[in-house]
């Protein structure tokens, strides 16, 4: 049985620069895997390759979700299949209230899956409950998405969108950066609420801290564009204590 997300020998370039160099990784349904690695290792690149950002070109290898070729799909088709990326640097969307943005996205996904649109009352009810759980002021959702928001607020908006869209496969790119401990707990609770046997998660982080709150099943070390070590949660603690030096050397 193939894993939910299955990546084989993935090579990718950005511009003319080779960033991913034969990356292989399996995330079975129901599991949370962490990817840790030094800055510049290619962690964000992996998240963009999996979500189909233009400019990130796959030169070799495969990536499938539930056996289906992910790389052949448009970014919005991947989203409709359930792939969600919490961006390391969320974009500002001037003039579009957060609620409008999310409802448009949700209905586009539903349409792509052949489902009916969500009704306005149903959507608002869900938005209110989710905002309360994430301690987001509901009025903030009426403002233009992320415009003028602090780093922490943007992160919370990513988790809010994730909770509203209920994706099947979650990629969190450095979601812990810029969060104080209280915000981190709220964000982790939002992510943990989505854990389940049907879902898979890839949690990208530079620091071990986030993994105290989102406990991973497996930890992988990404260095110079490939997975150079894999282990249980204890690997994260070891990396925290020893740093990435030996893996950077292994890769070099």
């Amino acid at each position: 049985m193939t894993a939910m997300l299955s990546i084989r020998n993935l090579h990718a370039t950005v511009g003319d620069k080779q960033i991913l160099n034969g990356l292989t990784l399996d995330v079975p349904a129901g599991e949370v895997h962490a990817i840790m690695g030094p800055n510049g290792a290619g962690k964000s690149t992996l998240s963009y390759v999996l979500t189909g950002r233009s400019g990130y070109e796959v030169t070799q290898g495969t990536a499938t979700l539930n056996g289906e070729d992910l790389l052949a799909l448009e970014p919005n088709e991947r989203a409709a299949k359930g792939v969600f990326l919490s961006f390391q640097y969320p974009l500002e969307i001037p003039g579009v209230p957060a609620l409008t943005f999310i409802r448009t996205a949700l209905n586009a996904q539903r349409k792509a899956r052949g489902e009916a649109e969500i009704s306005a009352p149903e959507f608002l009810k869900k938005a209110r409950a989710t905002a309360t759980a994430l301690k987001i002021d509901f009025d903030m959702l009426k403002r233009a998405l992320n415009v003028g928001f602090s780093g922490g607020e943007k992160t919370r908006m990513e988790i809010f969108q994730m909770a509203m869209l209920e994706p099947r496969f979650l990629i969190l790119d450095e979601t812990d950066s810029g969060l104080d401990i209280d915000a981190l707990k709220i964000v982790a609770a939002g992510v943990n609420a989505l854990r389940g046997p049907e879902r898979g998660m890839l949690v990208i982080t530079h620091y071990q801290r986030l993994l105290d709150y989102i406990k991973p099943d497996r930890v992988h070390v990404l260095s110079a564009g490939r997975i150079v070590a894999s282990g249980g949660p204890e690997l994260a603690l070891q990396l925290e204590a020893e740093g990435y030096d030996r893996y950077v050397q292994v890769a070099a």
Binding site: T51, R53, S54, E74, P75, N76, F84, F87, A108
Partner: peptide, 11 residues
């Protein structure tokens, strides 16, 4: 911003 919206599911 367009990629961001597409990642959320918008064509």
């Amino acid at each position: 911003a367009i990629f961001y919206a597409r990642q959320r599911g918008m064509p």
